[in-house]
Amino acid sequence: MKFQDALVHRDHRFCVGTEQDSGRCYVSIPVSNGMVDYEEYYAIDRATFELFRRDPDAALPFVARCRRRELDELLIVPPGANRGTAI
């Protein structure tokens, strides 16, 4: 998979982008499991992608739910056994 960020919001620590092979849109958040830092990618539709790209603050409630693991059904890559916690 090739994830390409279209927006990086450093203050709130999330990205919005497109997975290049499938064309799926995503929001990603940084996580850490104590051994490695990595990103979790949550699928969003094209309209939501465009909204979040135009208005990053509109993504904040969605990002907060991702951090609380309330939207795990949207994970593009399932987490491993040693899943990290949001940074």
Rank of each mutant, 00 (worst) to 15 (best):
D21T: 07
R54F: 14
L75E: 08
Y26S: 01
E19V: 06
G23R: 03
E50D: 07
M35E: 15
E50S: 12
K2F: 14
I76K: 05
A58F: 03
H12R: 12
F62K: 04
A6H: 13
R24L: 11
A47F: 06
R53C: 13
G80T: 06
A81F: 11
D57P: 12
V31N: 01
R68Y: 08
L74E: 03
L51Y: 04
T85Q: 13
V27K: 00
D57L: 09
P79I: 05
R65W: 05
A59H: 07
R13I: 03
E39Q: 06
P56T: 00
A59I: 01
V8Q: 07
L71N: 08
R24V: 14
S32M: 03
Y26D: 04
S22R: 07
A64H: 07
R24S: 13
C25T: 06
V63N: 00
D21N: 05
S28Y: 04
R53Y: 13
T18A: 06
V31M: 06
V36E: 09
V16F: 00
A81P: 14
Q20T: 06
Q4D: 11
V8E: 05
C15E: 08
F14W: 08
A64N: 03
V27L: 02
G84K: 13
Y26F: 10
G84W: 05
E19N: 12
A81E: 15
R24E: 12
Y41L: 04
A59R: 04
F52K: 04
E70G: 12
N33S: 09
R54Y: 03
S28A: 13
I87K: 11
R46A: 08
E73A: 14
E70M: 14
L74W: 06
N33T: 11
A86W: 09
C15D: 01
V36L: 11
G23H: 07
C25E: 11
V8M: 04
T48P: 02
R69H: 09
F52Y: 12
S22D: 10
D21W: 02
P61L: 06
I44A: 01
R54S: 13
N33E: 12
G23I: 02
H12S: 05
A43L: 13
L7A: 03
E50W: 05
P78M: 06
H9T: 08
Q20Y: 02
P78F: 03
D37A: 11
D5L: 10
R68P: 05
G17C: 00
I29V: 13
R10T: 13
Q20G: 01
S32D: 14
S22Y: 14
N82R: 14
C66F: 08
Y41G: 02
I44P: 03
F49E: 09
P30C: 02
D37R: 12
A64G: 01
S32I: 10
